[in-house]
Design a binder for these strands. Structure first.
Length: 427
RNA sequence: GUGAGCGUAGCUCAGCUGGUAGAGCGCCAGACUGUGGAUCUGGACGUCGCGGGUUCGAAUCCCGUCGCUCACCCCA
C-alpha cells in the first residue's frame, strides 16, 4: 500500500505573507520609502549572506544574537557564512568597502529586507523577519539623532498609528560606560536579595537588564539604583542634552527611559525605541541609536553614525486593523461577456484597458450573466462591462457601476475615459 | 534554549465522564435561460496535525513528534 505523502510545510518561525495582508505591507513600504526619500535617504541593497566575522565584530561575540541566534554554516570552501541577523553591520561594511567616506559629508542610506535570528517564535517575533532601516554615517551631530526620530514619528503618523511612545536613553561611550557598570554592579550586590528571582540572576549575568524588569515589587528598588545618565562623561552628557532639547523644540513627545538597554555592543550615546501597546510582549516597533565606533571596529576610518531599524512585521501588525479593509481594492472593471461570439471583443477590450494600466479581470470560460456579475461583486470590482449580442451589434457596451447599480451604454472607444472619470479612486 | 496552553470542514468553533463527527459563515447549484449583493431549497467538502500505545472500540485516555499561541529570555 502506498503511504500518503506528507505535505511539506514552511519552516518553523517563517511564514508566507498572503493577501490581504500583503497590501498592508505594500502600504507600509510605500510610505516608508516616501518619507525616507523626503529626508534625503538613498536605498542600498546588501547581500543577505555575509561573513560570520562581520557580525561577531560589530554586534558582539557575547550578545545573544551572535552567541546563540545566528544561522551560520560552513560554505564548501570552509568559509563561515551567516544569514544576516540585522543590517547595520552590512550597511557600514558597504560604506567602508565602497569608500563612501571619500565622498565627504553625510551619507544617508536605507534598506529593507529579511533578517534571520533563530529564536523561539511568538507573536511579532519570527525567525525570518523584516526590517526597514536607515543609517546616517559621517557625523556625530545630535541633530542627526533628532531628525531621524522626527522622521520616524512622521512615518507612524502617516500610517495612522495611534498609540506609541518614544523612549530615549543614553548608554554613554566606551569611556564612561564601564565606570557606570562598576557602580551598578556594586549597588546591586546590596539589594540583590530583595529582588525577584530573575533579577537575582540578571544582577550577575547582565546587570543592565535588571533595570528593565517589569515585576511590580522590584520597581521601588530599581528606582533607587544609579542611573547611566548620572555617570555620563561631559561630552556624552552634552550630546544627550542637545538631543533632548532638539526633540522638545520640535514638540516631539518622548519619555526618558533610564532602563532602556539595547542588546547590541556597538551602541554609544543615544539609544531609543518606539513601543506600541497594541503589540503585547514584543512591544517595540522600532529601535536604534548612535554607534560612533562601529566603522573603526570593522576596519574603516572613524565615521560616527546613527541608525535605526523598523520591525516591519510588527509595524504591519499595528497598521493592520485600521486600514486592512480599505486597502483591499478589487479590479476597476470586470468584463462580463455573453456567448462565444462576444469573447473576442471582450478580450480585446480587456487587453486595451490593461495596457493603460487599468486593473481588469475577465473570465476565460462562458458564464451566465448572473454568475458573471456575482463574480464581479465578489472581486469587489468597481464596474462591470457587459458585452452580449446586442452590444456587439451596436458597438456600445453596457457599463455598470457596481456600487450604485447604475448602468450606461458607452461607445467602445470611450470606455477607458469613462472608467477613469467615474472612479474617484486610483487604478 | 526553558515553562504552560492549543491543533476537529476553506474560516470561526462545538463535540460531557472513550461508542468511529456537527453548527455558523463561506463555497457550488437551483428557484431567477442577459443583470450581483437579500431570501428560500438542495449539494459538495474532514489524513479529527502526524506517529505509536491502551481498548472489543480513540477526535476523546497515554507516550512521542511537528506546528501554533502565551510567558521567560531577547529584540525589530
Amino acid at each position: 500500500m502506498s503511504k500518503r505523502i506528507e505535505a511539506v510545510q514552511s519552516v518553523k518561525g517563517t511564514r508566507d505573507l498572503m493577501p490581504p495582508e500583503t497590501s498592508v505591507w505594500q502600504r507600509v513600504e510605500e510610505e516608508a520609502r516616501r518619507v525616507l526619500r523626503a529626508y534625503a535617504f538613498r536605498e542600498i541593497r546588501t547581500p543577505i549572506l555575509e561573513s560570520t566575522a562581520l557580525f561577531a565584530r560589530s554586534v558582539g561575540e557575547d550578545t545573544d544574537i551572535v552567541s546563540k541566534e545566528m544561522y551560520t554554516f560552513q560554505d564548501r570552501d570552509n568559509e563561515s557564512l551567516t544569514l544576516r541577523p540585522e543590517a547595520t553591520a552590512s550597511a557600514v561594511r558597504a560604506y567602508i568597502e565602497h569608500r563612501l567616506f571619500n565622498e565627504g559629508g553625510l551619507q544617508k542610506l536605507y534598506y529593507m529586507g529579511p533578517m534571520f535570528r533563530r529564536e523561539r517564535p511568538q507573536k511579532g517575533r519570527y525567525r525570518q523577519f523584516y526590517q526597514i532601516g536607515a543609517e546616517a554615517l559621517g557625523s556625530d551631530h545630535p541633530a542627526i539623532d533628532v531628525e531621524s526620530m522626527e522622521m520616524l514619528v512622521l512615518l507612524l503618523e502617516q500610517l495612522s498609528v495611534q498609540e506609541f511612545t518614544l523612549l530615549l536613553n543614553s548608554v554613554g561611550c566606551p569611556r564612561c560606560r564601564p565606570e557606570y557598570l562598576k557602580v551598578l554592579r556594586h549597588a546591586l550586590e546590596d539589594v540583590r536579595a530583595n529582588l525577584c528571582r530573575d533579577c537575582q540572576r540578571r544582577a550577575v549575568t547582565n546587570p543592565l537588564r535588571v533595570l528593565d524588569c517589569k515585576v511590580e515589587a522590584d520597581q521601588p528598588i530599581i528606582e533607587q539604583l544609579p542611573r547611566m545618565a548620572d555617570y555620563l562623561c561631559p561630552e556624552c552628557r552634552q550630546h544627550f542634552e542637545a538631543v533632548k532639547d532638539g526633540l522638545e523644540s520640535r514638540r516631539i513627545d518622548y519619555r526618558q527611559a533610564p532602563r532602556l538597554v539595547r542588546g547590541l555592543d556597538y551602541y554609544t550615546r543615544t539609544t531609543f525605541e518606539i513601543t506600541c501597546s497594541a503589540l503585547g510582549a514584543q512591544n517595540a516597533v522600532l529601535g536604534g541609536g548612535r554607534y560612533d565606533g562601529l566603522s573603526e571596529m570593522l576596519g574603516g576610518p572613524p565615521a560616527p553614525g546613527f541608525g535605526f531599524a523598523i520591525g516591519e512585521d510588527r509595524l504591519a501588525l499595528v497598521v493592520m486593523d485600521s486600514i486592512a479593509k480599505q486597502l483591499e481594492l478589487g479590479p476597476l472593471a470586470y468584463v462580463a461577456w455573453i456567448g462565444e461570439a462576444a469573447l473576442g471583443s471582450a478580450e480585446n477590450l480587456a487587453r486595451a484597458l490593461r495596457r493603460q494600466g487599468i486593473s481588469v479581470e475577465i473570465s476565460h470560460q462562458p458564464m451566465k450573466l448572473k454568475k458573471s456579475l456575482g463574480t464581479a461583486s465578489k472581486l469587489a470590482a468597481r464596474f462591470a462591462i457587459i458585452i452580449g449580442e446586442g452590444e456587439l451589434e451596436s458597438g456600445r457596451y453596457q457599463v455598470k457601476d457596481m456600487t450604485t447599480g447604475q448602468q450606461t451604454e458607452i461607445e467602445t472607444n470611450q470606455i477607458e475615459r469613462y472608467l477613469q472619470q467615474n472612479s474617484a479612486r486610483a487604478i
